[in-house]
Amino acid sequence: MNIVVPIKQIPNLTDELEINGDGTGLDHDALQYVLNEFDEHAIEEAVLAKEAAGGTVTVIGVDTTGELDGALHTALAKGADKAARITGDFPRGTDSHTQAKLLANAIRSLSPDLVLTGVQAADDRDGQIGPMIAAHLGLPYVGVVTGVAVKDGKAIVHKEYAGGLMGEFEVSLPMVVGVQAAHQPPRYAPVSKVRQIAKTAKIDEIAGDEAAGAGSTVRRMFKPEAAGHAEMWEGGPEEVAEKIAALIKEKGLLKG
């Protein structure tokens, strides 16, 4: 089975996100980029599917940071077999429509049975890449999926609705899946292994064509002006515990 995992690097959300000078985007140069957390799950699910049914896993991304190789090497260390980088003039923060088009063009020539993407990324202002890749390739798509099992040219996927309710679907391959969570938490790749792979791994280079464009223009980017903000309690754990306990008592919620 030929499994392809398109990945996307996004700003590290634990960093302070600064808005650029003209107020229409992030100050990307000031940010550290990491792999979208749902892509970590897509990679894990791909490796699990390969382990269960055999095949190869190819991880592919648009190099918007100049640092994509790090993410690709990590994926290889986790069990992916091949890696590919789409190159071109695609800066940090390249929109989803452009990345999806570039990825779809590259993935088409790989003739995948299964394409596993992360269900969403924190910077998908113009939409998630999974359904877009599926539309470009003319393949069926199911997202918000927490489990994929492949058998006899078909995939059984579990899609999450609210409250723990799930829909089970049977899909004839090839298909594109938006992975919400893998069957098990993403495995850890030891740094030593990633370093070793970085020395020997071959990463295919694919020249990207033009940017598709988001089709919409950001006029203003800003931090939300919260309708309210928590009243902050100063002090260490003892003082804060004291305040919380007092409030619980005041609300009559202390047992006994």
Partner: peptide, 9 residues
Amino acid sequence: MDLAAGLSV
């Protein structure tokens, strides 16, 4: 989430 981005394309 299964529909909007695909319809856009």
